[in-house]
Design a protein around this nucleic acid. Sequence first.
DNA 1: GTGCTTGTTGGCCA
DNA 2: GTGGCCAACAAGCA
Length: 277
Amino acid sequence: MPELAEAEFFRKRWHLAARGQKITVVQTHDRAKIFRGTGVPVLRRALTGARFVGSEARAKQMLFRFNGGAWLGVHLGMSGELRAEPPGYTPQKHDHLVLTTKRHALVFTDPRMFGRVQFHRGAEPPSWWTKIAPAILSDAFTAELIASFLRRRARAPIKAVLLMQERFPGIGNWMADEILWRAAIHPARLAGSLSVAETQKLWRECRRVCRLALDTIAGRGDHLPPDLNVNIPRTWLFWHRWAEGGRCPKSCCLLVREEIGGRTTCWSPARQKLTLP
DNA sequence: GTGCTTGTTGGCCA
DNA sequence: GTGGCCAACAAGCA
């Protein structure tokens, strides 16, 4: 599930529950693959008694900051979720990390275990965090940057290129399809074949979809929607892409699903043409 | 049983 | 060295 906006949703969920609170108990599934490359005993010792002082989401990742220079990084992989449960919560089978405060149990759960928890100690955030590519909504994400990236990846389908985190941090399968649908670009088009106007449109829709997804999924300011997706308008491709017999919300034609760039891809044949007329 | 799944990585090959 | 493709990872669901 988790792409850019979902990561922000889950970050906020922990943040609103735990800011300023002290962690009293740390529970872990020590042998979970989730902790690969991370010393679980070190993490437990450092977080027990630490105060939650801040957090940030970038791309599909989150960074939680605790006093005393302790940093907890979370990537939700394919099936990860963060929840805030009552303090007496009993960890379930797929709950790999539970941080308990006086008011809540912060739960990281992930059945498929493609997610990842990392720990860092130091005055500055860790390099695996700072090396994440410039955000799509930042000033550094320019149309020229995208144009030159598309030239470098000229022989790859544009759908596959949009999934490259080194340039499109936070874009996942559904957001990539949503962007291409709005930009009216067929997902199988080779990146190098896009016109200047199409590249510009792609860049603009990248930013627009990120902004809209963040606002509707994660909410603005301190507001957090009751659940993911509840505010997503029916006019987005999102709701129709998996449905059997799903129709394009703009053209009403039947949507097509096919594997492109190694991922199931959905598009509207009426809007997104492989060859120009 | 089969065939999917909103992600990432490493190995292979041109 | 660079870029593109694909299997593998693991569990649940229809």
